[in-house]
Design a protein around this nucleic acid. Structure first.
Ligand SMILES: [Mn+2]
Ligand SMILES: [Mn+2]
Ligand SMILES: [Zn+2]
Ligand SMILES: [Zn+2]
Lengths: 163, 163
DNA sequence: CCTGAAACTGAAAATCGTTTTCAATACGAG
DNA sequence: CTCGTATTGAAAACGATTTTCAGTTTCAGG
């Protein structure tokens, strides 16, 4: 499901950052690596904890600043949910939406949604002009669904550890 | 577009709260009134400022607490956006989605979206089971679109004051 | 009407996530 | 290698939300 490989993304991101005058520092590279390789949306603290393993002196501030840069270039996108809306995931190029597993938190991408007729009907009634739409699906992935099957007997922890 | 009238909502909310053991205090009533009558999503501080006119001694804490109660009963819903996701709007009963005007912030409700086929195709490819979906449209309402027309000459403030 | 238990209140303090400030450091074009 | 500038992390500042707490109010029951 995940369209780009982590290494592809990483290369793309590095190029994009440099092309826009950003410098490639060790701290920044560690953050990029974590985010590019993650299958799930991560918030600043989670990125911090993971990236710190590769870049010991890393500061949480730098995570925030790198996220800001990546977002400005459209390389990552925020993932909203019922609780906090402060997690980020790699953005695939082009128009796409997210599919989030409520079990493991992993994220898939999909496009090919046709909301054209819906938007027209909405616009038709009132004088409203729809400029943007925002769609997110939540469900259970194959793995988590099977894990939920084998539940009942055990108090299974369906949340997989973050790498 | 707005399905229920403000007074309908207010009555419904009061009943629901009392049915669940919540008490109807002056402070709480003021918050309810503001939210039930608002055409746009409001955050805690905006509710506080509006409700304080009717309930002078009102504390911001009570606004938070009332929002929590309303949300627990599914009477209000959070509105997400690019910036902060801390605004709330009355939730219409049943499945529906939001249409938000980026000009004035007013909110409309709509249903009748058919995402069944989309969800099936997503589910078909992987073993994913879609359990919920979440859709929000952003655009310009009739009034704000016209106001934007008459712009160009003036530096028109398209944001209408909050009641 | 009273009464009392429990829910509710607002002020203040605590806490959380994020941003700003700043002096020291590292990047990378030349 | 050199230098101008972007970047760094620590600490302080910040805004939004939550917790604590002692006094107040609601409302079911008598
Ligand atoms: Mn789409
Ligand atoms: Mn729907
Ligand atoms: Zn899963
Ligand atoms: Zn959100």
């Amino acid at each position: 499901m995940t369209a780009s490989s982590a290494e592809e993304r990483l290369a793309r991101w590095r190029t994009a950052l440099q092309a826009h005058g950003y410098r490639l520092t060790a701290a920044r590279r560690a953050v990029l690596r974590v985010l590019a390789r993650s299958e799930r949306a991560l918030d600043a603290t989670q990125i911090f904890d993971l990236a710190r393993r590769q870049a010991p002196g890393l500061g949480l501030v730098t995570v925030y600043r790198t996220l800001e840069a990546l977002q400005a270039l459209g390389l990552v996108q925020r993932v909203h949910c019922n609780t906090h809306c402060a997690s980020y995931v790699a953005a695939e190029p082009g128009h796409q939406h997210l599919l989030v597993c409520r079990g493991c938190g992993r994220v898939w991408y999909f496009g090919g949604d046709d909301l054209g007729s819906l938007m027209q009907s909405v616009a038709g009634e009132s004088g409203f002009v729809v400029e943007d739409h925002w769609l997110q699906l939540v469900g259970l992935c194959e793995a988590c669904r099977q894990a939920e099957q084998a539940e009942g007997s055990r108090s299974g922890c369906k949340e997989e550890a973050v790498k």
